[in-house]
Amino acid sequence: MSEQISALMDGELGTAEANPLLATIRENKALRQDWNDYHLIGDVLRQTVISPTDLADKISVRLKSEPTVLAPHKFAPRKREFIALSVAASFAAVALVALSSLKFSAIDDAPDNLAAQSNLSSNTSVASQSNPSINEYLVAHQEFSPGTALLANSNFAQVTYTKQQDKAR
């Protein structure tokens, strides 16, 4: 056990070995004395010693009259969990926004495809011809639409599409 203490002091024990050993040293007076002696030897060899008095005993006596310190627990794993969740949520939000933008820019970039599928281009012109007052209203209020210009356009397109469908019926 003393040899392990010696290695522990030198930072040469792994955590798995060091943690239980530290617990044992704390509970065992003889091992605590080894810990003290080995540190004293190191200090003497490095010429640190200025006092032969072992203050550890005096401080130990004073500590007994001190109220026990109880620091709030650190919830490190929870903190890590929280950070991981935050990062995941951020990525999800970014991905969602990016996906939405891509979706609408795809609509914007490929008007031919969209027109081919739904005749939207012609529908829009049909709508403007069929009901110019609504069209003007929608254009005038485009800036108040909740999303980007793309989104506003898409809403407008949806309205005209519905009207066209009604017309077809």
Binding site: R26, R32, W35, H39, D43, I50, S60, L63, L70
Partner: peptide, 22 residues
């Protein structure tokens, strides 16, 4: 350990650093 109320843990720190601090 000392933060959780283990005074012996703090005593080990005292033993380690008392001369350096002094």
């Amino acid at each position: 350990r000392a933060q959780q109320g283990d005074k012996h843990a703090f005593e080990l720190l005292v033993a380690k650093y008392q001369r350096k601090l002094g």
